[in-house]
Amino acid sequence: MKLKIKDVEFKNPVLTASGTFGYGNELEDIIPVNELGGIVTKGISLKPRMGNPPPRLAETPCGLLNSIGLENIGLEKFVKEKWPEIKKIGPEIVVNIFGEKIEEYVEIAKTLEKEGIRCIELNLSCPNVEKGGLEFGRSERVVRNLVEKVRENFNGVIFVKLSPNFTDIVKISKAAEKGGADVLTLINTIMGMSIDAENMSFKIPRKVAGLSGPAIRPIALYIVYRVYQEVDIPIAGVGGINDIKSALEFHLAGSTLIQIGTALFIDPWIPFKIIKGIEEFLNKKNMEFKSIIGYLNKKRG
């Protein structure tokens, strides 16, 4: 199940999703992290971010709303303190990054390249302060421009993570591809809300939060299916994968890689069950891993 994207090899297709596995080494003593295909870190910004006040979470039917607020220690501390630790643990590390301006993404990418980091993931679901706080990922032009600028400054693998809020994600995906993305991570959380009727209040003080978990799986799966038809770069499917079957669903729809997120909170051993399960499925069907990617789908043209 080894995969090569540019010159980076992933030992299997199963990665942890950003924001659901800390910086990467928190569970080093508990689970065999070196057997993962890869780890996507928490989102890193230029300056440290404190995150949002609690409560930050609300459970919904088969889903989880979160408003962590992108809490992180900032680029400088990440590079000095975390990177030396996490680069030792084994699997490929994908550093998720975000900013409020295009220049911030570029600056972070430059610094990470200097440190020898080979994979980054751009979170484009963040407010663009220069465009009145609209998400970067809403505009094809902005997405293409942002990815191009990062591309000019980063030679490794660039994942671009998109969310289906407000826009046609197929068009945005194509813009990211044109800008020079190597992998599309589909999808980020979907905006949602939860209200405590009895107390007549919002469950999360910020009102709007990101929905994840099996509740969003059919949406994520459909987006992977649609985008696969229109782009040539690989897709990392993410959204509600919590067992072997749901992992396979994403591969069959067109995902090359998959990311496990919310399911880690319930079962941190689940990635390894999925890795083993995919191998057993392939043996049973007598198929190569590559032949199940997009098995139920067709590239257009």
Binding site: G19, T20, F21, G22, E26, L27, I30, K42, M50, G51, N52, P53, P54, P55, R56, L57, A58, L64, N66, I68, E71, T262, L264, F265, I266, P268
Partner: peptide, 24 residues
């Protein structure tokens, strides 16, 4: 008691404010 998703330090949900510092 905190509203938490994981219980083992990866979800960052059960934040509690450190006194005198800008961090949870």
């Amino acid at each position: 008691e905190g509203i938490m998703a994981c219980g083992f330090g990866i979800c960052m949900g059960c934040a509690v404010k450190k006194k005198g510092e800008n961090r949870y």
